[in-house]
Write a protein that binds this DNA or RNA. Structure first.
Lengths: 334, 334
DNA sequence: CGAGACTTCGTGAACGTTCACTACGCAGAG
DNA sequence: CTCTGCGTAGTGAACGTTCACGAAGTCTCG
């Protein structure tokens, strides 16, 4: 009464072959329904395969046939709509090129980002992601893997980087607010601590250029932070008549607070988000925003990564560094 | 002036070995920084490896060492927050168990879902997903792979299924609306065509049981559909004082329309969504909903799939069929 | 000076599959 | 009766890596 290898080893092609009384090659022919096999044998082999729960090893197969290419996508928090819209774009762009996408979410990592990175590096042929690690650490982990880093200022000798240049968008956003009569414009920022983010100091720079006072309130990047920072702003500077938020989530938090105190949007205070998420349409009034074309960003990232993988593009240098900027998406809050 | 194998074949461990004047094993030792190697040789090997752009084949390695397990996740549209919240949960639950997750988005498939399914089946060790295909087709594509199907009514002999039982949630939702004095409750449905969805006919059943008229308007599942169907409802049945929407997106669309016509929520008309998405918090007033614990669903799906893979659970039958239901999440619209 | 012990490195085998080729049996044509 | 061709099936080799083992060389110490 032996346990017939209950949970020992998964069946191999040889197990199937001997059980069905044929050779490896015949099993292969049956499994991949190739020509040159008698329908009766094919049937029999298939039945044996099923009985033995045989599944061809993807590793052994990958060794022999053309490898299925796989992209690693590294995101901070998939729950955030910004990242999920980006992810959707990357997945579909990659699919069009015949690549798979494997995900890693650094926010929910069990033991910090580093192990996640290491394990991802083993599994994939290229990486796209929000990588907030030093360049040398990048080399250490990924070696010569193609890597596209998102939203990072390019430095000479850097890997492929897609930079988000907030300046043109911010400039046109502020211009629009000023043109519509706003004079007390505040930025709901989310740098690290009291430090301004890049968006924060660009805002200050542009405002100063225009001879306007740059009101900048530090906070966090979530909806709740938006509520909080807007409340503080209203207390400290009741004269504000427009806010630009660190992102759309913060903007929607700010809108919630404005609604709570009964302030009309955009009458009493205009609101301008950053990101241009599609969920900006679900709030009332619909959120105006400095929009990034996330579909285009995802597609660009995939094209760069695939290009580097194929050797059409170098792994580093200006040729693989791109800049994208925002366009003013006017809906109803500004 | 030969092109030194510019784009011919990627370097193998043997190329590195001969170039560095050592053996395979020494290269292995250097790459996986194992003990028993002279630091100087290790350094040299590493340099050669880098120069040749050598990357160990994950297939060859997977053949020898313990396989990294991979989960396939099949979703309709990652852009939809419902799916992305679910995806985030699956990714993190899987990561905790040491599994990778590879994504497929059937909405953006190039040649229909079938090829996507086929290619996924080759790549993964288990599948979780919204699979709207016939059971026999499932067998055909996935064979004996563990498969967890989401949101499907269980049938005898079925594979693993996580059923969403809308009845308890709907019952308590309707009870709450009635208790707060609503009498003209409508369902903003999104079945196929004029046909009621499961949520639709359950709504009708419960309403009839209570002796109330079940008003059900067919529509679609998006925000825009919500706007549209609410407008039609307001035209046809101005007396409605509460709506239950097919999902949160439709509910938010309905809220937009109510805002547009200046109707107070929940004063003039209560709104109850289904799903309990976290983005329900960004609208004003915050959306009440029949909430599904998506983190729990994701975790459950992963546990079932991993259990089936490991042999702890059968591949089919009642032991791997679960039912989850909604809880009434009261925020501000009902 | 020789016996061990340790350090460093190399060799055969194995993982599971597919490709290219060969072998067999049998039909019909010459 | 032999030759050719076709349908079917099997065999050696290869893919690129790691594991288990063994073989040198160096060092230590009696």
């Amino acid at each position: 009464m032996k346990p017939e290898r209950s949970r020992a080893k998964p069946a191999t092609i040889l197990d199937v072959a001997s059980e069905a009384g044929v050779s490896r090659q015949t099993v292969t022919r049956a499994m991949n329904n190739m020509s040159g096999i008698n329908p009766a044998t094919k049937q029999r082999v298939l039945e044996v395969a099923r009985a033995l729960k045989y599944r061809p090893s993807r590793f052994a197969r990958g060794l022999v046939v053309a490898h299925p290419l796989t992209m690693g996508l590294l995101l901070d928090d998939m729950t955030n709509p910004f990242y999920s819209e980006l992810a959707a774009s990357v997945v579909s762009s990659a699919a069009e090129l015949g690549w798979n996408v494997i995900f890693a979410d650094t926010a929910h990592g069990v033991a910090g980002p580093r192990p996640i990175l290491e394990s991802l590096a083993m599994q994939v042929d290229a990486v796209i992601g929000y990588l907030r690690v030093r360049p040398d650490e990048l080399d250490e982990v990924f070696g010569d893997l193609p890597v596209v880093v998102l939203e990072k200022a390019p430095e000479p000798g850097d890997r492929s980087v897609i930079t988000f240049d907030f300046e043109p968008g911010l400039r046109s956003g502020i211009a629009h607010l000023v043109d519509s009569g706003r004079r007390h414009i505040a930025m709901l920022d989310a740098g690290s601590g009291e430090e301004p983010s890049e968006r924060g100091w660009l805002f200050e720079k542009i405002m100063v250029e225009r001879g306007l006072e740059p009101i900048r309130i530090p906070g966090g990047p979530t909806i709740a932070d938006g509520v909080d920072v807007m409340r503080r702003l209203l207390d400290a500077r009741p004269e504000v008549d427009a806010v630009i938020a660190f992102n759309d989530l913060v903007a929607m938090g700010a809108m919630k607070e404005l609604h709570r105190v009964g302030a009309d949007i955009p009458g009493r205070c205009a609101v301008l988000g950053i990101d241009g998420l599609s969920i900006g349409e679900i709030v009332t009034p619909e959120l105006s925003s400095l929009a990034l074309d996330l579909r285009a960003v995802g597609r660009l990232a995939v094209e760069l990564a695939v290009g580097m993988h194929g050797g059409a593009l170098p792994m580093t240098g200006p040729e693989v560094q791109r800049t994208v900027s925002h366009t003013l998406l006017l809906r109803a809050t500004a």
